[in-house]
């Protein structure tokens, strides 16, 4: 595997959640999700229990990847914002720090304008947290932060996982 792993530590996770909670409140949204571009959910806030969050993350990432492909086809670098309008609920999707996807689900208690405004502000904050995460991840890879929990796993651990 050549790509570096994506490592999320407790401290940054709390900061991300806090930023998402604030965004949800200020944008008057139902739920807010932060998703890795590969389709893994990173953090969320709001009424998330009513959604199948794993499926939501995977489909959103697929959607963004397809849209990215479209952008490149017509010579654009990216389409940084996607908006899906439903009868009751709407989804606002944007790219944060080049590698994450911010999803805001809202209904008529809010508006597209308000969501866009708040997303812009929140994105700046999220980008800063991501910067710290990346720096920590790099230091972690060089071994200056605690060692990976997987460096110690044995073949038996792996076999046990498969019930052998």
């Amino acid at each position: 595997m050549c790509a570096a792993d994506f490592v999320l530590y407790e401290e940054e996770f709390k900061h991300l959640e806090e930023a998402l909670r604030r965004l949800r409140q200020e944008a008057n949204a139902k739920a807010v999700f932060l998703i890795d571009k590969n389709g893994q959910q990173i953090a969320s806030a709001g009424e998330t229990e009513q959604f199948d969050t794993t499926s939501l993350a995977s489909l959103t990432a697929g959607n963004v990847a397809a849209t990215d492909g479209l952008a490149k086809l017509i010579g654009e670098r990216e389409f940084s914002v996607l908006f899906h309008e439903g009868q009751q609920d709407h989804i606002h999707i944007s790219i944060v720090a080049k590698r994450a996807i911010l999803v805001v689900i809202f209904d008529d208690r809010s508006s597209l304008g308000l969501v866009r405004l708040r997303v812009k502000r929140a994105s700046v904050e999220l980008e800063k947290i991501f910067e710290v995460m990346m720096q920590k991840g790099e230091r972690g890879a060089q071994g200056s932060i605690h060692a990976s929990p997987f460096s110690e796993i044995t073949d038996d651990d792996i076999d046990a996982l498969f019930g052998e």
Binding site: M1, A3, A4, F6, L8, Y9, F13, D36, N38
Partner: peptide, 8 residues
């Protein structure tokens, strides 16, 4: 790219 989440 494996995603390791220490928080969860």
């Amino acid at each position: 790219m494996t995603f390791i989440n220490y928080a969860s």
